[in-house]
Amino acid sequence: MTSLSAPLGRQKRARRFPVGLLLVAAPVILVVALVIYPILSSLSTTLNVDVAGAGRFSLANYARFFSDDQSLRNLRFTAWFTTTTVALLFLVCLPLALYLRFSFGRLPAFVQAIATFPLFVPGIIVAYALIRFIGPNGTLQSLLDAAGLHGYRTPYLTTWGPVIGLLWEGIPLTLLVLVSGLSQVPQAAIDAARDVGAGPLRILVFIILPLIRNSIIVALSLEFLRIFGAFTQPYLLGPASPESMGVYMQRTFGDLQDPVQAATQAMITFLCCSVAGVIYVRTIIANRRAGR
């Protein structure tokens, strides 16, 4: 994970041997064959409409998507739970990362182990475990009842269901990227600020946050990409309607047997995600330039 935000420029620039080209050839060919080619093929499928046996360029498939209430509702819902979850991830992980960076001993190590644990739990297990925990008559409700707090309403099968599941799943990656970013904040800078009388909040806002800006962008854009295409958590924990784009695509493809419309939904999802992708790539490039 460190390589994502580490200033790569410090490494010696490799001489351009053909061997180097050969080494990158394999991943490049894979990306072209498994990513670029399918994208282009989907794009041409969705932009062609069959008129009397001949394919003709048309935006009809996209027009159909954007004039359909259900599709728009699902797209809006996906955008909503993605931005909400990403924002919550930032709010949860930043304090945790600061704590892990600035404290020492056994407890922080334990906290870090707990926080990275979700990385090793498959999504479907998380979903069923959460149903038992936050679901009706689940552990949480029993605990609240025992404490005399009644009137708990479970988020299971509501729009907040997937947010909770995806948040739990997303903590490890976000945390690891933020911690690695924080580890590059020089202690000297913080000490210097403290010497001239800056309080903790000032140090956070004026020293730490600007220094880990790239890590934050990298972490959040990666999470954005993961959550926008999420399937399992919205499928099992979310409401029947609206659906996440992932669930909607699968249903359009599998149940409604409408591959062209499913490809159109996929292209629109891809366009939304590519915004985050562009931000991510630009950050990485800026990192490299800064490090040069």
Binding site: P136, R153, T154, Y156, L157, T158, Y235, L236, P239, A240
Partner: peptide
Amino acid sequence: YDNGAYTA
């Protein structure tokens, strides 16, 4: 259940 929830 829950004013119109449907399980998966």
